[in-house]
């Protein structure tokens, strides 16, 4: 952060939970990935995968598979795997998941076991 003295001055100040903030940002990227895959696959497959007539003797294939499957599903699936690897090893951040105050965490039986608030 580069503001050590200020941080010390503000010790005890409430800040948004970094895991919450990180997770929210990462969720946005994940949803965009889903959307991109959806648009590609759905657009291509509905355009080329629903023919009104098929000539069995001249059916288009790539690598022996129906071509609409290769371009509409196999290719985006492969790219989605690449994006997933980049996301996991290049974008997603590590974070301390244990609560700061260990007293908050009960071992096995929660301290809030007697919570009885109603709606």
């Amino acid at each position: 952060m580069g503001h050590t003295s200020k941080a010390v001055e503000e010790s005890g100040e409430l800040i948004p939970d970094p895991v919450f903030v990180q997770s929210l940002r990462e969720s946005g990227v994940i949803l965009l990935t889903w959307l991109a895959c959806f648009v590609w696959t759905f657009t291509y497959c509905t355009r080329y995968g629903y023919p009104t007539d098929v000539d069995p003797t001249a059916f288009p294939t790539v690598l022996g598979m129906p071509s609409w499957v290769v371009w509409g599903i196999v290719l985006p699936w492969s790219l989605a795997n690449v994006v997933t690897l980049v996301f996991c090893f290049g974008f997603m951040q590590d974070a301390a998941l244990e609560p700061d105050d260990m007293s908050e965490q009960a071992s096995g039986v929660s301290s809030s076991a007697d919570v009885g608030g109603e709606l």
């Binding site: 952060m1 050590t4 941080a7 010390v8 503000e10 010790s11 005890g12 100040e13 409430l14 800040i15 948004p16 939970d17 970094p18 700061d100």
Partner: peptide
């Protein structure tokens, strides 16, 4: 939320 660490 979380408390900013004194050693931040």
């Amino acid at each position: 939320y979380t408390r900013r660490s004194k050693n931040a």
